[in-house]
Simulated assay, not measured.
Amino acid sequence: MRKYLIFIFIVLAVAGCKKKNKAVTSTIPGKPALTTPAQNSVCISGTIISATESQVLFTWNPAVNTDSYDLVLKNLLTYTSTTINTIDTKINATLLRNTPYEWYISAKQNSSSTTTQSDGWKFYNSGAGIVSYPPFPADIMYPAFGQVITPSNGKIELYWAGNSVGNNIASYTVCLGTTSNPPAIKNGLTESQLKDVAVTANTTYYWRIITFDADGNYTDSGLFQFKIQ
């Protein structure tokens, strides 16, 4: 009887270990690493389809625990996004020429609803006869969209990040106000920040950044909003 009880104990212990090991097995997809088109590049390797469109190859490294991928493409002029699903680590997509884009990969696992997103990379899909390229729209860093801010002595700071293919950004214009068409409050900024911005409590603000390069090209970050407590 004693030997039988010892046997049952061992069986239960082994089963418990198996369940424990199974419980810690991760099904969360790994983070994909992008390869091409490269960050902040002029894409010249696409296949021209027409005067307005070309086909571009996107590639990335495989991610662990992943069954499929979503390629998400964002047109940085219209701010519209397109999603393409694939089980491969490369895919062709038809894009507008002469247009800046941002892209990222979302890794998916069939047995989990959790997805893992790669970094976002920007590139410019080139067009015929282009000798200079507009800067990429500025990335709004702070305040983020919808963020609630507690000011210090009635003032806040604004931060953003700018990039361009030719590394020739000349200046920024900051537009800020309480309507969805905020006026320019500062022109000719060469730094990607604006300090000591006076704000009013219990107020929603709208803001955008206009980026200018040395060739006279410019882009709009798109409209963002935040609230002051």
Rank of each mutant, 00 (worst) to 15 (best):
Y206D: 07
N110K: 15
K20I: 13
I8F: 13
G222Y: 02
T66A: 08
I130G: 00
T89K: 01
S113Q: 10
V131P: 00
V148K: 12
S152L: 13
K195W: 02
A63W: 03
I49F: 04
A93E: 03
T116N: 03
G127K: 06
S26Q: 12
T36M: 10
N125Q: 12
I8Y: 11
L5C: 11
F212W: 12
L95N: 02
W207M: 06
A144R: 14
I91E: 03
T211G: 04
K186N: 12
G30V: 11
N202V: 11
T83W: 01
Q109N: 15
L176M: 13
A214K: 09
I209K: 01
S45P: 01
I130L: 12
Y218T: 10
K18S: 13
S126T: 13
A170I: 06
S68K: 07
G162M: 10
S192E: 14
K90D: 07
K20W: 13
P183E: 12
P151D: 00
N202P: 00
A161I: 12
T86N: 06
K3Q: 13
Q109S: 06
S180D: 11
N85I: 07
F123C: 04
K20Y: 15
C17V: 15
I91S: 02
S180W: 09
W103A: 06
N110Y: 06
I228N: 04
P62V: 13
T25V: 15
S81D: 08
Y133L: 03
A144N: 05
N65R: 12
Y133G: 02
T116Q: 03
T190G: 12
V11R: 12
D119P: 00
C175L: 13
K155N: 13
N181S: 15
A63T: 02
Q225N: 15
I140H: 01
A161P: 00
S132R: 06
N61Y: 10
